[in-house]
């Protein structure tokens, strides 16, 4: 252990203070503060239009910061965007692989944009293709790959410069469950190698599995921040009982239960620290179907951001 490494571990990789992004009269990001510790996975969770992607784009110097401070590796993004990007791997929301190049050429050409090349990079391409299990498809064009394979290639491409920080904008949106699990496995592996991950998502399961710390964002603001476990403890009751059935019966139950209630269509969500009495009651009512489960991040998310539809 070197003393320098210990000291470095305390310094955040990313720091934002009163970070704001204004598009005309619309404030996409509204004075947010956060710190990202090295070696952690930090998540931005929020509905569409919450300001997640805009925050990432500001961090990478891809859109100007309107006001506030944003530093990465101790460098201000406004003046050092190129240096920061040289040490970062970026995985965009939509794959933008080069359709004219094969899998391995995509990696080699991308490396050249970093000024990288030669035998060392050739060896690194082999390693990365193994890492994302695309070694056998190295001569294929991206169009011939499945969605999951394209995503894996995009991940390999983002690692070509051996980044310290990996930024992922909705890494598994649009993928099937199998492909999603493969991606999660690769990202967990990256974290265990000491890389710092910064990701946006609107999948609760993804946030719960991957993130050490996350913020829930909506309308450009941070509504809550903490580990997934902390957020659940702080913002919702321990248990949820989801009941489905007729409106009248439900309302009657609601009055008696003493739970915090939320209704969606003909489902009633009862949040409580003490589920036993309600469960006893429900057991006798065969007209009602119910599910009892521990509260999760989704409950926190819906409580904080509301249930109305977002586009």
């Amino acid at each position: 252990m070197q003393p320098a490494a210990i000291q470095q571990a305390d310094t955040p990789i990313v720091t934002a203070r009163k970070l704001t992004k204004q598009f005309g009269s619309y404030r996409a990001v509204d004075g947010i503060d956060f710190d990202i510790a090295p070696g952690k996975c930090f998540g931005f969770l929020g509905p569409n239009g919450a300001g997640k992607t805009t925050t990432l784009r500001m961090a990478m110097g891809l859109t100007p910061v309107s006001s506030g401070e944003l530093t990465i590796f101790g460098l201000a993004v406004q003046r050092h965007a190129a240096e920061i990007r040289a040490r970062t791997g970026i995985i965009p929301q939509a794959d933008n692989l080069d359709p004219d190049f094969s899998v391995e050429e995509n990696l080699a050409v991308y490396a050249s944009f970093f000024g990288l090349g030669g035998p060392e990079i050739d060896a690194r391409i082999d390693t990365l293709l193994d890492f994302v299990a695309l070694g056998e498809r190295r001569k294929a064009k991206p169009d011939a790959l499945s969605g999951g394979m394209q995503r894996r290639l995009t991940i390999a491409r983002a690692l070509i410069n051996e980044p310290e920080l990996v930024v992922l904008d909705e890494p598994t949106t649009g993928l099937d469950p199998q492909a999603r699990h493969v991606i999660w496995g690769r990202l967990t592996e990256l974290k265990s190698r000491g890389k710092t991950l910064l990701l946006t998502t609107h999948y609760m399961e993804e946030a719960e599995r991957l993130c050490d710390e996350l913020v829930i964002m909506d309308h450009g603001r941070i509504l809550a921040q903490g580990s997934p476990r902390d957020l659940i403890e702080q913002h919702v009751e321990t248990d949820v009982i989801e009941v489905r059935g007729e409106g009248d019966t439900l309302r009657e139950l609601a009055r008696q239960s003493g739970c915090r209630l939320e209704q969606m269509g003909n489902s009633l969500y009862c949040y409580t620290q003490n589920p036993a009495p309600l469960i006893e009651q429900l057991k006798d009512r065969h007209a009602l179907r119910f599910v009892h489960r521990p509260a999760g991040l989704e409950d926190v998310f819906l409580r904080l951001t509301g249930r109305e539809l977002r586009d």
Partner: peptide, 11 residues
């Protein structure tokens, strides 16, 4: 093709 978007993720 979003090639420039990809290039802008590099230095």
């Amino acid at each position: 093709q979003k090639t420039y978007e990809a290039i802008l993720a590099t230095p």
